[in-house]
């Protein structure tokens, strides 16, 4: 997959095999444990890590990630602490910030996204996913990303077609986040068939396609990559592990181990899917 964006690290993450892209809300349930958890994802084989900066009104999130947002905000997470967290983090995978537009807009002078992007570049982030920022409103953030060499990932829904798809694909860089089904985030026992249709619609665009929403097992990951995805994005299934740790009062180490082991399962699933796809292509 050729590089299509500003970040070489993000482009490299999608080369030579499927990318495993895990998400965790930073500061969930507290700053120190959260550092351990993100590092566990890295050990488990993460190719890119999406770090959630919690916003008080997360309209695109289901109950699982809402819970993480509440825990993190109650623990005192702020944009400045988020940036400090990113600086402190010791991981190999490139990092992408997932947050809502008001936090990006208000940072610094409070009059646009540039200050936030500048700071993000300084602490070593490679890009952004902003679920409440449609392509129509995204030009100021797109320009700031280009100025500081970061990528801007957009979400494509099962309902995104025609002019809207064109508008999004003309502004996306890094990778495109293919939403596997309608609704909000959340782990599901099954993954929707609409994924294949979405991937077909995107085939002509030269940017990596990472599928998310509902992926919770190695089997899902395998099926989705076999179906043509360049990567898988997993959030709620990992956040569930953190939440269970809080509920059962598990040690940070025990939770980190579980995160690492699910990561290995997901990554292995993605690789099996990729092998199957390559084999099918060769036998054709």
């Amino acid at each position: 997959m050729p590089a299509t964006g500003n970040s070489e690290a993000l482009a490299a993450a999608f080369e030579g095999g499927p990318a495993y892209v895990p998400y965790l809300a930073v500061g969930d349930p507290d700053y120190d444990a959260s550092l351990e958890y993100v590092e566990a994802l890295d050990r488990g084989g993460a190719d890119v890590i999406e770090l959630g900066l919690p916003f008080s009104e997360p309209i695109a999130e289901g109950p699982t990630i809402q819970g993480a947002v509440v825990r993190s905000l109650e623990g005192g997470m702020t944009p400045d602490r988020f940036f400090a967290f990113v600086e402190k983090l010791d991981v190999d995978a490139p990092l992408v910030c997932m947050t809502y537009y008001n936090l990006i807009y208000q940072y610094g002078d409070g009059d646009g996204p540039r200050d936030f992007v500048e700071k993000a570049a300084e602490v070593g982030l490679e890009g952004f996913v902003v679920p409440d920022l449609p392509a129509e409103e995204a030009d100021p953030l797109r320009e700031a990303c280009d100025e500081f060499g970061l990528d801007l990932v957009f979400i494509v829904a099962p309902t995104t077609t025609g002019d809207r798809l064109e508008r999004i694909m003309s502004r996306v860089s890094g990778y495109v986040y293919v939403q596997a089904r309608l609704g909000t985030t959340g782990a599901k026992s099954d993954v929707a068939d609409s994924t294949t249709e979405s991937l077909d619609r995107l085939r002509e665009y030269d940017v990596p396609k990472a599928v998310g929403f509902g992926i919770s097992s190695g089997e899902h990951a395998e099926r989705i990559v076999a179906g043509g995805a360049d990567g898988i994005i997993v959030g709620s299934a990992l956040v569930d592990i953190v939440a269970e740790g809080v509920e059962a009062d598990l040690s940070t180490e025990a939770v980190a181990d579980r995160l690492e082991s699910l990561s290995r399962e997901l990554k292995a699933g993605a690789e099996r899917g990729y092998a199957a796809r390559t084999e099918a292509a060769e036998s054709r």
Partner: peptide
């Protein structure tokens, strides 16, 4: 300013 799934 809404999630993509709501735009249609």
């Amino acid at each position: 300013y809404v999630p993509e799934a709501l735009m249609p």
